[in-house]
Amino acid sequence: MATTDQVSADPGAFRMQVVAESIRLFAAQGYEATTVDEVAAAAGVSRRTLFRQFHSKEDLIFADHESLLEQVGELLTGAAPGDDPWWSVCAAAELVFAHFHANRELAVRRYRVVADVAALRDRELVTTYRYQRLFEDHLRSRLPAVRPVQIVAYAAAVTGAHNFLLRSMLRGDPGADAATLRGELVRLHRAAVAEPGAAGAEIAVVSYPAGTSPEAIAEAVRSQLTQLTGTPCHDGLKQAETRGTR
């Protein structure tokens, strides 16, 4: 394949291209036996370009994690002031799972390559902790009154549940899917907000500006209840909307 010093205008697409080609070669030839030059040629870029974008051979196989970490960071920092910080962490975990589910074949090949190389297994552990640290930092910044141990425990639980189901999905467990992950995250969320001192532990009756329509109020309440219970809330709120318009 001809090489070029030009990188795709889409950095995320370029990283996925490099990940795909590096994992394909590592799986076929072995991690140690594959050279960076071979990966560069397969990806259609020069060795110089590849080294400008990545700092080591290990970076090649985990390159998409860098993009994912950026997306997780953006999701958390972009959360609105009124958003539930506990659930924002869950939403970030779902984002990561969705990426690997959508690219399952590639993720399975990486899983097998990493399992055979001790250095890659260590790198994977470090990468996993980087996600957890983002979760912890977000919760600390949004919930300064919550006990640090609760924040660490929650971030670790969300990370652990995600990773367990991700590995199960890669091993072919049909029950390890987005719906199962959502159910586990809902349970963790309920436990977090129920603990004394946790934000969201109480159900409050709030006021809305005069003129707010019953439909708008009902939709806001419905959204919160669905988030807390994991079950769409329709019938009771629809009745409330009807009464409010009479």
Rank of each mutant, 00 (worst) to 15 (best):
D64R: 08
R123C: 02
Q17D: 10
S141Y: 02
V72Q: 06
R130S: 08
F62V: 10
V108C: 03
A80T: 06
A118E: 14
F14V: 06
E219K: 14
H101G: 14
C233D: 12
P85T: 15
G30A: 02
G197T: 09
V149N: 07
A156K: 00
P174V: 10
R47Y: 06
G200M: 01
Q6V: 14
P232W: 09
Y154T: 09
A191S: 05
Y111D: 15
S88R: 13
L25V: 03
L125W: 04
L237M: 13
A98W: 01
Y154I: 07
T35C: 00
R24Y: 03
V108T: 04
E124V: 07
T231F: 03
A41T: 05
G175P: 05
G160Q: 01
C233L: 13
E70C: 02
H55A: 10
A41Y: 02
V72T: 13
A41S: 07
A93H: 03
S223H: 10
L134R: 12
R15Q: 13
D173E: 12
Y31R: 02
H189D: 02
A91S: 10
A191C: 02
A98G: 05
D137S: 12
Y129Q: 08
A145D: 15
T231A: 09
A80F: 03
A33I: 00
V72L: 04
I23Y: 05
C233R: 11
A179G: 04
A179W: 03
A107F: 03
G244S: 08
Q53R: 14
V193R: 14
A20L: 09
D177W: 07
R167T: 07
G78Q: 08
R52M: 04
F54N: 15
V36H: 04
E105C: 05
V149S: 14
G211A: 06
T4S: 15
D235R: 13
V186A: 01
A91M: 13
I217C: 04
A194L: 09
Q71I: 04
V108G: 09
A91E: 11
Y31F: 15
V36Q: 09
T242C: 06
E105Y: 01
A240H: 04
R140L: 13
T128S: 09
S67Q: 12
D64I: 14
R130K: 07
R48N: 08
T159R: 11
T3N: 05
Q224G: 10
L134I: 06
V193F: 04
L165K: 01
A63G: 15
A28S: 11
Y31W: 15
T4M: 02
T245E: 11
R123D: 06
E241T: 15
A157N: 01
E241C: 10
A220G: 12
P174T: 10
A161W: 01
L60T: 09
E94G: 07
Y208Q: 06
V206C: 05
